[in-house]
Structures are given as C-alpha cells and as structure tokens.
Design a binder for these strands. Structure first.
Lengths: 317, 317
DNA sequence: CCCGATAGTTGAGATAATCTCAACTAAAGT
DNA sequence: ACTTTAGTTGAGATTATCTCAACTATCGGG
C-alpha cells in the first residue's frame, strides 16, 4: 500500500526538528514559529498514521518510526541543499569559470593552467568544455575562449578581444613520413591518408583540406577518404598515432610540434580569417580574477615561439 | 555567497521536468497544470540567477546549469520518497525490500524479477534503488545486493555472501565499429570515444579505463575525454547508442551482449577484486521471503551462459 | 512554596505560495 | 492550409502555511 507523498514542507519540518530534537531550535533554523512546526508535524503524523515524536512537556524524542524515517530524509534534504549550493559556486569571486572547446582545452589550455595556478593560487579556475558556445546568461560562465571569424559583426551583449589568429597547417607524425617516404610537395601529401577535423563544420564555414589543396594548386586529391573527428583533440591524437596527416589549428598543434610528436610535412598554410578570441558579457564588470586570467593568457600566447614552425600562407580566405 | 534555499516545491517542479524533459509529463506526474510548473521553474531561475532550461516551442532541454543541478536533486528527492515509502512497508510479512544500485536494478535485476514473481506469487518484492548503501536499521530494507571488495573486512552488523565476481570488459555498439573501422588491439580501442562509468568513484577505489589501458600496455591513451556517468545503466545506454566504448561490469552488460546490442571489441578484461554480494542484517532472523529471494538470485547467476563472452583477464587488481 | 521562564500545543484568522484558467505563440503533424 | 500540441504568461482563485495569542506543564531560582 503506497502512501501519497506528504507535503515536502512537513517533511522538512520533521527533519529539522528530528535533527535538533527541539521544536524551538528547528523553528529558528527555518525562520518560522514553533507553532508552525508543531502544526506541520502533527499533520504529517496524521497523514502517515504513525507518531514520529514522543512529546514531553519541554522536550521531544523520536519514536521508533521517527528514527526509521529520519535518516533517509536527512540525507535527501542534505543532497538537495548540496545541489543548490553547488550551483552557487559559479558566483563566487575567486572562482573563475572559463568556457572553451575540448580541443582548445586539452591541447593548449589545460597543459598551461598550472602556470596560472602558480601565479594566482587564490583563484580557482574551472574549465567548462563543450563543443557549443556556452551562454553567459544561463550557464554560469565568466569568460570564454572562442574560435570566431575576425570579421564577425559585434554582438551587443558581448565584449570580444582577439587573442590568436588561426592558421591551418598540415601536421603528421614523423613516423608517417618514415612509412610513406619523403613528402616535399602538396602533391606528395595528397597520397597520404588524410584526417579531417570537422569541429564547427555544421555551424560555421571552416577551412578544410579542399581549401588547402586548392590553394596549393592540387586539384585531384581524393578528399572523401580519411578519418573524421568532431573534436580537434581527437583529431590531433589520431595524427600523433600516425593515422594520417591532419590540417590542424596551429595553436592547438603547438605543443605536439614542440615535442616533435608532430611535424609539418609541407610548410604551406591557409589563413581562414578566424582567430581565437576572449569573450565576456558586455556590461558585466569584469572581476579581478577574469582580468588576471585575460592578462595571463595574452602573455602565454605572446610567449609562443613560432620561429621553428614558420609556414608560407598560401591563401587568406 | 550562499543562496537562500529556494522553495522545495519549485525544486521538485524542476526535478520532475528535468527527468521527463517535458513540462506536460512532469505536470501529469505531479497532478498540476503545465502552467503551474512553468511559473515555478521560471521563479526558480530568477531566484538562482541562472537559466535551467532552454525553451523550444514544444520542447525543453537542460542547460549546463540545469545539468549541474539536476542529479543532486534527483537523488535527494528519490531518497525522500524512498524514506517515506520505507516507512509504509516495514513490518509487512510478505513484502521484501531489496536495496541495490540503479545500474544493477535496471540492467540485470528488473528484467528478471518476473521469474521470481512467477515462482513466488505470494511475495511482493520492492526494489529500493539508490547510489549509496541503504541502512538496514533505518531504511526499512530486508536485503541488499552490493558491489563490494572481496577482501572487505567483516562487518559485525552484516551477513555478507559473495554472489557474482566482477570483471570489467570493454563494450560498444557494433555500429561504433562500423563507423570507426576495425578494432583489433587495445591501441586501436584507444582512438575510439570513451565512456566512463564513475559510479562509486568518490566512495571506493574502482577499476577504470586507466587501469585497463595500463594492463593492456597502452600508456598514451587520453583519459580526460569522453562522456562520464554516475550510474552504470546510463553509461550502458550511451554505449548502446554508439556514443563510445564503455568499460562495463560484465554482469550488467550481459543482457545487451546476449541480444547483440553491445559487443566486446577487444577481448581483454580486468578483475578489480570486487564482487556483487548479498547483504543482510546480522542477528535478524531471515524471513522466508528473504531466503526464497537469496536462493532464486543465486540460481539466476548460476544460469548465466558466459561461453560466448569470454575475455582474457589481463590483471587482477 | 511561589513565581518567572521556557518549550511545546492548539485554534483562529492572516498571509502568501501555489494553482487553475484562458489566451497566446509557434513548431510539428496531417 | 489547417489542426494539434507543448510551453508561456497574466490574472485571479484556492489553499497551504504561517503568525498570533492563549494555553499547559515542567524547571530553576529566590
């Protein structure tokens, strides 16, 4: 026989009174009068058909039924409070929530965040990683790093600062070249297995292998073949595993290039007219944590040494 | 900055709508109009200062904030409901309350309970499903099926019987293999999207992908990526939908393997030294219903045919 | 022993939270 | 093109929750 659920406010009244073993203390906690709690609990007892408290004149004690009911309610209400409190984190002054793509997160930002942490031990940075743009109004984020067109019209709701221009460069594992023989020209490259990074493909025009080969004057490359990924980090990992040659964001490939895990087989690039941008909500006063982060990330970008990875930009798209 | 607690009825409205992803369905469950829920949730969003749902004209979807808030509320309200329900049935001789995890419930136990009902029509089995261990003293349960270490020290308050050893096997939809190409080795598997089942992660050491890849000799798999679930049934459902490859409990994956919805792409497993156990309160005379259930579930486990799903156990953790 | 303080209860009425209803928008289905 | 459906919104109705005041009875201090 299933009982109908009693009112949640009555259950909460009981839980608080059981925890304090005092109507008065529970009333203070819940900002109501002891009379309110007394009514609530009496009503609960009538509905459930059991006595939950033994009343003494100036004290209350749990009955066996009350002892049975209390722990599950205590845990349940605690979890509800924790869930609400967990959401509150986003508004805390020393918590900074930065939204960016998984590719940018795992291939460039995450490996550097320890430096920010060292420089600003008082600031707790949380990376909210998703393939779609997070919403400043609804998703509790403070800042975003986004891949956007450099000619995008201003959005009245957003402050946007250009951070790092994007070029697309072919990258592959040196082991791929060992396996397939020397690669000197775009034509040579066309016979390698290709990897396609299709991040954003459905939402915005992106440069891809077709653009690269066209700019290089190669018209007969078979672009249907090859692995396709919808996250740049997965595509870069596949390239690192010799799965093929990837047309990669230079910034995201940077660390793998620096370690030698990836090389640039043909030093020709295309510039799609896009850049990573720092984005925040217009009108919202930027917090010191957000200002510190912006300053730090600009320094990190400025500190990158591209001299060993220069390419000739064949086309400005 | 701690937010004041919002009204419980608003949180309940949100939880029901989030669970159904439908205002109409949630309204039916709560016996109110969709307009009532719409007002409650809008008020909750204003109070918390975040959007919890993205509104489409005839549908709603959770925002990131909504996804963050929902699980804790869902668990919290489930525990409150269970606590009230537990009070209702305690003491009824032909009611048997069995506590276990949602994964065990929906992926293995529930599909078989009709057999127990057929064999014992006089016994009313109630499954109390939660992610945390229920308490025999307070939660009104008669028996539990728990994932425990096989070397756990005896608990003076509990009778514990080993039921079914746990191995972790990689499983995925055959459609994932169709999409990504042949998977023959652990290295091959490393490039598939991963699914992480984080049930129990915060409470007990669990085997995970890191353990599996390490045992397989793969040291460069990127384990930060992939979907994460805190309930095995959700993880298995995602795997069935081709979201990736999951390191699953063999027992919980059994039915999906048997039907072919899931396959084992690389037949390598790890054995974490854990097993499902039957647990009851020591000192309490076991009821005939509990004895019948124990006997039945042992028979069900013994009847499983693993011949088609053999794997090589790479490591005993 | 008396008196004041304290904790809990109870009934009546006030307050405000919650709900229904109707009208609306706009996408989906026929 | 029309109908159906899901969700939203404002206004007003309903009812759950609350306060208040009066009460009971124990406890502690003088």
């Amino acid at each position: 026989m299933a009982r109908p659920m009693p009112p949640l406010s009555a259950l909460r009244a009981f839980e608080a009174a059981a925890r304090h073993l005092s109507m008065s203390a529970a009333a203070r906690e819940l900002n109501v009068t002891a009379g309110a709690l007394s009514h609530q609990i009496r009503g609960l007892e009538e509905m459930l058909g059991v006595r939950l408290f033994e009343r003494r004149v100036r004290a209350i004690a749990l009955t066996a039924a009350g002892k049975q009911l209390y722990p599950g309610l205590q845990t349940g209400f605690a979890q509800i409070r924790d869930a609400v409190a967990g959401l509150a984190v986003a508004g805390q002054p020393n918590v900074l929530v930065v939204s960016t793509s998984p590719g940018m997160t795992s291939k460039w930002l995450a490996p550097r965040l320890y430096k920010f942490g060292a420089a600003h031990p008082d600031i707790d940075v949380r990376i909210s990683s998703s393939l779609t743009n997070a919403n400043f109004e609804t998703d509790g984020i403070d800042l975003a790093v986004r891949n956007m067109s450099v000619t995008a019209p201003p959005d009245r709701m957003l402050e946007v600062e250009r951070l790092a221009d994007i070029t697309f460069i072919p990258v592959c594992s040196p082991r791929l070249i060992d396996k397939h023989g020397p690669v000197k020209t775009a034509h040579d490259l066309a016979r390698l297995p290709l990897i396609h990074d299709e991040t954003l493909k459905s939402r915005a025009a992106q440069a891809d292998w077709k653009d690269w080969f066209t700019a290089a004057g190669v018209t007969d490359a078979d672009l249907r073949r090859g692995l396709r990924f919808n996250s740049a980090d997965h595509a870069l990992d596949a390239a690192g595993e010799s799965a093929g040659v990837l047309l990669a964001h230079s910034l995201l490939a940077y660390d793998d290039l620096r370690t030698g895990r990836l090389v640039i087989p043909v030093k020709l690039s295309i510039a799609p007219g896009r850049a990573f941008h720092l984005v925040s909500a217009r009108g919202r006063k930027p917090s010191p944590a957000a200002e510190a982060f912006k300053s730090w990330i600009k320094d990190e970008v400025a500190a990158l040494d591209w001299r060993k990875f220069k390419t000739r930009v064949m086309a400005q798209l």
